[in-house]
Amino acid sequence: MGVTVNGVEHVRDVEPRLLLVHLLRDELRLTGTHWGCDTSNCGACIVWMDGLPVKSCTVLAVMADGRSVRTVEDLEGPFGLDQVQQSFMDCHGLQCGFCTPGMLMTARKLLDDNPDPTDTEIRQAISGQICRCTGYRNIVAAIRHAADAEAVGRGDT
């Protein structure tokens, strides 16, 4: 199979039963994507496939053959952290950090599609993810902070 991950093409022989999360972590050594509940409930394993967030514990690696995957490692650009990463730091949007990769990937997609979400829309966007530190309040605040910072960057305010 061949899959483009963060812009780099990888070709691997894999068993059909290998899950995408394990291809990323164990074969490609991209351990930023976390492997959590294994039941598509917690969202720690969220990556983008062909531009859409998916739970990679419930996608077979072979289903990504010929497709494009983006992981949390790709958020940081040549000029530093992505704004959602910076805002999670600034607003204490993480405690233990286990859910953070999934939260960041969902947050990035939300703001790409909807640059000025309401708090309700933010909560809906992350409703398929679990923070076992129960730090939701600061996660929502971090995503709001990122939206505001990006609005300033665009000159919207």
Partner: peptide, 9 residues
């Protein structure tokens, strides 16, 4: 139905 990420798939 489920959550937004599951609904993507």
């Amino acid at each position: 139905i489920a959550d937004p990420v599951v609904r993507n798939r």
